[in-house]
Structures are given as C-alpha cells and as structure tokens.
C-alpha cells in the first residue's frame, strides 16, 4: 500500500469519516475533525468531498438521516429519534428528513411498520416463488 502516493492523506480522511460515522449523535465540531486530521479546514473539506462526494457537513447530515431511518423502522418515536441522531430541534429534523427522503419521519415510519407487519404476517410475499417452492415454503402457516 505504501507504493501509492499520498496514502497517508487517505488514511487521515478515512479516519475523519469514521469519526463522523461513530459520533454522528454528538455535537460534532467539524473544525475539530479537520484539526484531528491535521488539515486546514479548506483542504480537509476539499479532499473529503473529492473522496466521498459530499462535504463533511453534508455527509454528517446524510449519516444522521440514514441512522434515523433505521431507528424509525424499529418503532422509535420521532422526537426521540431526532435526539438520538444528534438534532437539537425536532422541526429541523423533520424538515431535513423530508428534504432528503421525500417523506416526513412519521409517514416514513408508518410505511416501514406496514412493511414489517406484512413481512411477519405473510413472509412469502417477499420471497421469489421459485425459492419458496424449492424450500417447501408454500404451506399456509407461512
């Protein structure tokens, strides 16, 4: 790996990305993240965007919304979810969520719960017929 020029730069950016992945629920100061990566803020943002396609701040927001989708899918209340993924204001959370996913958190949660219930009640609907038949998963109890 050392033969690749500037591999050390990649390692620092990846470390910063993983820091966001692991601390998205905290009050992350992206100035500190760039400092920890030993970059100027401008250089850090430029390299991060070059590698991941998002600015660090946009990546943080995207990560929070992705985590929120998982939490909402598990039935966590919207308000609690917004706090668990690092939003200070539920209004800001709802607005950002809708902007990114196209639906409100409560509508998203409703869709997920309907899907989950259907999956438990009639899992065969989610399995291609060929696999289900091969396994004998065609009995009424499934």
């Amino acid at each position: 790996m050392q033969q690749f020029e500037k591999i050390y730069l990649y390692r620092r950016i990846v470390k910063a990305k993983l820091f966001i992945d692991n601390h998205y629920a905290d009050d992350i100061d992206l100035d500190n993240v760039s400092g920890q990566a030993h970059f100027s803020k401008f250089h850090f943002i430029r390299l991060f965007k070059l590698i991941y396609g998002y600015t660090p701040n946009n990546y943080l927001v995207k990560t929070r919304i992705e985590k929120a989708k998982i939490l909402l899918g598990k039935g966590n209340p919207v308000l609690q979810t917004s706090i668990m993924v690092g939003f200070h204001s539920p209004t800001s959370f709802a607005g950002t969520f809708k902007k990114i996913t196209g639906v409100s958190p409560s509508a998203f949660q409703k869709e997920q719960l309907i899907k989950k219930t259907a999956m438990q009640a009639n899992p065969l609907r989610f399995v291609p017929n060929c696999f289900a038949a091969t396994h004998g998963w065609t009995e009424p109890q499934y």
Partner: peptide
C-alpha cells in the same frame, strides 16, 4: 431489504 422468518429456524 427483507428479513423474514420462514418457520423452523429458516430466514429469508
């Protein structure tokens, strides 16, 4: 995408 119990320990 899908995590569905198929009975008798089977899982899709």
């Amino acid at each position: 995408h899908t995590d569905a119990p198929m009975g008798e320990g089977a899982r899709w």
